[in-house]
Simulated scan of single mutants.
Amino acid sequence: MRRRHFLAGGAALTATAALAPLAHAAPRPAALPPRAAIVAVLRRVADHWIGAHTDPGDNLWANATFFSGLLALRRLTGDARYLAYARNWAEQHDYALNGGETTRHADNQCAAQAYLDLYEAEPEAAKLTALEANLHRMTFTDQPDKNDDWWWDDALHMAMPPFARLGALRGDPAYAQKLHRLYAHAKHTEGGPGLYDDTTGLWYRDKRFLPGGIVAPSGKPVLWSRGNGWVAGGHAKTLKALAGSHPDVPEYRATLTRLVNAVAAVQRPDGFWNVNLADPAHLPGPETSGTSFFLYGTAYAIRAGLVGRAALLPVAARAWHGLVGTAVHPDGFLGYVQKVGDRPESSQPITYDSTADFGVGGFLLAGTELAALTG
């Protein structure tokens, strides 16, 4: 069934109108810089963060997203410093999950992505003990038929990849099957119709924002940029983990492709995306975290052949030039990151000096994926 957006007062808003772009500053270049230039910026941003955080911090979702990005940069560069910093972080937490092995909360499972990266770099069984105990419980013994845990779209980034990667590593299809049941609930059932808006290919953050719920001051829908960025990142990481022949891959590919094409249509000329994709006048301005994850998803989709390179590479290039030219400080500090929240109004105002660990992680993921497009 096709779903319609609704304005306050009951007037229908078409998908095209809901995603109308807004003119901004002068357009960014549509060509990629050389690979070495991309890597140099990534190193500058990563090194600044590490230098400012001698204590690597907690293992909650936000910091875990940083380490996912840092370890992607480690794979790209082979830099042992990044591996050592991440290893020290994981060892401080004994490769455990916040909430323990009984947790069902997707945020608590995000750290497992970095643990899996560290395991791939230096295989030691103890690195995956907590993760495997946790996902085994959810899949086999602790209410295995309960599939409503992913009630917000951020969960797709936090938890889809650990299920997919552990299942692939162990050769056990049950983990990917459980993943898809959780995913299907979020997409098609949560809140009644599900969080996926099939008129646009975008996602509502949670059921509060479904038609008839929270809207922008203008009455237009709220389709939060970073929420959709989490979805893009979760799909890209999951597709990297699953074999191309896996039965759920066509759906994940189609969903990511539709999302990437939808956001391409509303990219700002300066390369960024607005915090509300459905209303460019709703707190307009550059925002780094959503933009980074859209760049990550777009670059992956190009590399995987899901979208045409000629059509989407300029989108990726504009996003990169916008981020580097506007958000990256000369010393590597990354600004214009909307801090923790759940909607466009969260953590406002967003400024040149607004940053967060997960924003840095998203930027590193985006840049490493983009660098792979340069050959």
Rank of each mutant, 00 (worst) to 15 (best):
L13K: 02
G305T: 12
N98Q: 13
A319Y: 00
D353R: 13
A17N: 14
L32V: 05
G192Y: 03
T291S: 14
F363M: 01
Y183V: 00
R226S: 05
A84V: 10
V307P: 07
Q143L: 13
L242K: 01
N147S: 13
P33S: 06
F294N: 02
L32K: 05
S245R: 13
D270G: 03
E345Y: 10
L7N: 14
G305E: 12
L259N: 01
T16H: 12
A262D: 03
S245A: 15
F293C: 06
M1R: 13
K237V: 04
P349E: 12
W152C: 08
K207W: 04
F293M: 15
F66R: 06
G341F: 05
L373F: 13
E345S: 14
A106Q: 12
T54C: 08
L256F: 01
G229W: 04
P250G: 11
A30P: 01
A174V: 07
K207E: 09
D153F: 01
P161A: 06
A72D: 15
G191K: 03
F163E: 00
G213L: 06
D342K: 12
L259R: 01
T326V: 03
L365Y: 02
G78F: 13
T200Y: 00
A366N: 01
E122F: 14
V260M: 07
A281M: 09
V275F: 08
G69V: 08
L32W: 08
A62G: 13
Y296D: 01
A23G: 13
T291E: 06
G359Y: 07
A46V: 09
P314T: 03
F67R: 11
D58K: 10
A106R: 08
P344Q: 05
G285M: 05
A80W: 09
N261Y: 02
Q338F: 05
R2V: 06
G308I: 07
H136M: 03
D270N: 09
A327G: 00
T65P: 08
R303N: 08
A243E: 14
G362K: 04
R309E: 07
W89T: 11
A216S: 15
V41S: 09
A301K: 01
F66Q: 03
L259I: 02
T141G: 11
K146D: 12
A319L: 02
Y252R: 00
T139K: 09
R181C: 06
P29S: 09
I350Y: 11
P144G: 10
K146H: 14
A366T: 00
E91A: 15
F6I: 09
H93M: 12
L277M: 04
P344L: 05
D149S: 14
Y183A: 04
V263F: 02
H48L: 00
H105N: 14
L156F: 03
W203P: 04
T291N: 07
I50K: 05
S354V: 11
H235D: 05
T368Y: 07
L73G: 02
K237R: 15
L7T: 09
A72C: 10
P161L: 04
N274V: 06
E132F: 10
G325M: 00
E124A: 15
A243F: 09
